[in-house]
Amino acid sequence: MTDRLLHHRTEGSPSAPPLLLGPSLGTSYALWDAVAPELSASHRVIRWDLPGHGGSAADLIAPGATVADLAALVLALADALGVERFAYAGVSLGGAVGLQLAVDHPERLSSLAVICSSAHFNGARPWEERAALVRREGLGAVAATAEDRWFTAGFTVPRLVRDHREADPAAYAACCDALAAFDLRDRLPSIGVPTLLIAGREDPATPPAHLREIADAVPGSALAEIPGASHLAPAQCPEAVLAALRTQLSGAPGRGMEVRRAVLGDPHVDRAQARQTPFTARFQDFISRYAWGEIWTDPTLSRRERSLITLTALVAHGHLDELALHVRAARRNGLTPEEIGAVLLQTAVYCGVPAANAAFTVAQRVLAEEDSAGG
């Protein structure tokens, strides 16, 4: 019976790879309104409501519920829709559901994105107290402070605030019970699915340290921090979240970002990530997904050969700052100083002596710095 399933919305081609999107406590699947339509261009997007939220029946959850109970409801929905294996992304409580799926049912996940969430939620007591308050007085007092917990000052999404006020108090309290009992810290190292953590730098509910804790424990995971984002990052900074998810879903955290770091070095990539803003997020996504995730990973040419080509192109166009970066990259890719010099000498013939002269100056400085650091 459909009324025993979580209320959901499906977008995109039925034949596309499935992607399930989980909401945070107090919201509905409207949390994904600014992101889901874009993702549906490449995926069969299925976003769902928590029990007692949006269109989901309140009696799908009971007092004393656990996050594992919610994960079972998500699997029941996937089974009913004929979805065997899927990518998953979730915010806050929805992210906790994703972690639970990853430790209990890894065979069902192709990838996992945990957004503004935690492997624990600051202990049981605050959630026990919130559950008791809601059972006693309803959602009025809690909903009145939602905007302060969810968004930075001056920003709001009225639809989500309304969803909070209209949630079923008993179901909301049972979700608080689930958060109170949730702590997967000791099981994080067992997660083997490709995992992305997304933190909002202004998030007071699950600060970046909570996501960093997961990233440090989950082997091979990646962490992205979004400047200016609070707890509901998909609603407040959809472009940045979208860029990160596109990278994850294309496989680039395991491909593009890994290659980018291997060639350019962690310090450079970390600086680029730290400078990322919502305005530049799509460009950073393009670089990681296309340049590094597709071009540099193409096996037709080796990385040594790609460094030779890149050095030549940068000299030809006079991009000296980028040239310095790629001289270092060429050394990581196995080129000797003599080989780099030979490339620059070749450019003197085909790109011009002045261009090669400037390039030799840059390369000599970088190689001297490399020698000094190595010494």
Rank of each mutant, 00 (worst) to 15 (best):
P337F: 12
P14D: 00
P219Y: 03
G318I: 04
D186S: 13
P158S: 10
L311C: 09
T2H: 07
P299T: 09
A113K: 01
C176S: 10
A119F: 04
R212F: 03
W32R: 01
V114K: 03
G54C: 03
F182P: 02
L179M: 12
D163Q: 01
V67K: 02
D285V: 03
V157A: 09
G140D: 11
S92W: 04
G98S: 08
V263F: 07
L325M: 15
A363T: 07
H8N: 04
A58P: 03
A141V: 12
G254I: 10
V114Q: 05
L19G: 01
T361Y: 00
D285G: 11
R212H: 10
G374R: 15
D216L: 12
S92D: 09
T152R: 11
G90T: 07
E137G: 02
R332L: 14
R149G: 07
A89H: 06
E213T: 12
L314I: 14
P37W: 12
Q276T: 15
R246D: 11
W296E: 07
R125Y: 09
H8D: 05
G192H: 00
Q236P: 10
P37D: 09
E11D: 11
L101R: 01
R187T: 08
A368D: 15
D104S: 15
Q284A: 13
P106A: 02
L77I: 12
L197Y: 10
W48K: 06
A373L: 13
R201Y: 00
